[in-house]
């Protein structure tokens, strides 16, 4: 069995009467990237903050790097890299000063110049973090998360506010960390990001794990049935079928060239939305 860096069993978290998490179980093996997806308020951040040791759980069992985050000490933190969802107010220290200071805390830190190059901040190393644009500040956050050469990296919505190009650069940075063997827990609202980076996805909806699987398998084969869409008169019609070619042929035979014809294979985003919707209906029923 692969080395389990994270093992969560029947995790529960409540604040008085309010239940934030109800029976969440998941695991992350060494070298793996797990994407944690879910609507706002579903419990993603609560889960990740419990794993990081910022919050105490109400029930269940949690092991991160072999220890209980609630009772782990400074040595345990040396194995973690944490990029928080909101990095708070930016520092008046320069990028290099901040990275040097952090590097000094870890027993086997990365070379500061290498980290600067990896996140594309060499040009900005001498600038105060507070003077950088939002996207560059987020890169500095990521640099601070990886400078300690963590075995387990937490990335909580790392690319929020990035433009398309910056996001793609960020993905290639994450791929190079994956190639180095870094284990990653990622939360994101961008489904394509999860599809690009994750080995496995866990969807948390309504405080529970609603689905789990590889990006191309989660939700089951059923969820990936192609959709054929066309217009008939003023009505846009759509039909799900395993044989879209045959359906299109029959449409052509019946209507001639169909208007606004599309054959769509559901993206991860479509599958995800189906999962969340189904879960919500189930919860209501």
């Amino acid at each position: 069995m692969a080395n389990r860096l994270v093992e969560v069993q029947h995790l529960r978290k409540s604040y008085g009467e309010h239940v934030a998490l109800d029976d969440v179980s998941l695991h992350i093996d060494e070298g793996e990237t797990l994407a944690l997806l879910g609507p706002n308020g579903a419990g993603k951040s609560t889960t990740i903050e419990i794993l990081e040791g910022y919050r105490v759980r109400s029930g269940g069992d949690v092991r991160v790097l072999g220890e209980d985050p609630q009772h782990a000490g400074v040595a345990w933190r040396a194995g973690l890299g944490i990029v928080l969802q909101s990095s708070g107010e930016a520092s008046v220290a320069t990028v290099r000063e901040e990275l040097r200071g952090l590097a000094a805390l870890f027993p086997d830190s990365r070379d500061v110049d290498e980290v600067l190059a990896a996140v594309g901040l060499e040009q900005h190393a001498g600038r105060r973090i507070a003077s950088l644009s939002g996207g560059l500040q987020r890169r500095a956050d990521v640099a601070m998360g990886i400078v300690g050469r963590p075995r387990l990296l937490f990335l909580d919505e790392p690319t929020t506010g990035f433009d398309a190009e910056a996001r793609r650069e960020f993905w290639s940075l994450i791929r190079s960390l994956q190639a180095d063997g870094t284990t990653i827990l990622l939360t994101t609202h961008y489904l394509e990001e999860a599809a690009q980076l994750a080995d496995r996805i866990v969807v948390i909806a309504d405080r529970r794990v609603a689905a789990e699987g590889a990006p191309d398998a989660i939700g089951g084969a059923e969820a990936r049935t192609p959709i054929v869409r066309w217009r008939e008169g003023d009505v846009v019609r759509e039909q799900r079928t395993q044989d879209p070619g045959a359906l299109v042929a029959s449409l052509v035979a019946r209507l001639g060239e169909p208007e606004a014809l599309e054959v769509v294979r559901p993206s991860l985003e479509d599958v995800y939305l189906d999962i969340v919707r189904a879960d919500r209906e189930e919860a209501r029923a």
Binding site: N3, R4, L5, R63, L65, G66, E67, A72, V74, A75, W76, R77, A78, G79, L80, P107, D108, R151
Partner: peptide
């Protein structure tokens, strides 16, 4: 699985 974060005194 112990000492994963090790290296610190």
């Amino acid at each position: 699985m112990t000492g994963l974060g090790g290296g610190l005194p």
